[in-house]
């Protein structure tokens, strides 16, 4: 296996792990779970900022 092929294999496996496994199963957008709208997300964060005081 030439170095070029090896590197392509590493890139593909790495991108797959990052986007298809980590992003999908371990790194959901936290604010999306709180609201579908920007207004709702803003309200949630504001409440957090106020109440963590």
């Amino acid at each position: 296996m030439t170095v070029g092929r090896k590197l392509w294999a590493i890139i593909i496996i790495k991108i797959f792990i990052i986007f298809a496994i980590l992003r999908l199963f371990f790194f959901p957008d936290f604010l999306n779970s709180k609201s579908d709208t920007d207004e709702g997300k803003g309200d949630y964060v504001r409440e957090q900022l106020i109440n963590r005081n």
């Binding site: 170095v3 890139i11 990052i18 980590l22 371990f26 790194f27 959901p28 936290f30 964060v45 957090q48």
Partner: peptide
């Protein structure tokens, strides 16, 4: 070699902003 192995490792930092540091991100 260095570029191929290192590329996209930084994108994970952005994932963490959205999940672990959502107040900050907003």
């Amino acid at each position: 070699i260095n570029f191929a192995i290192g590329v996209a490792t930084g994108i994970i930092l952005e994932f963490q902003f959205g999940t672990n540091w959502s107040n900050y991100s907003w």
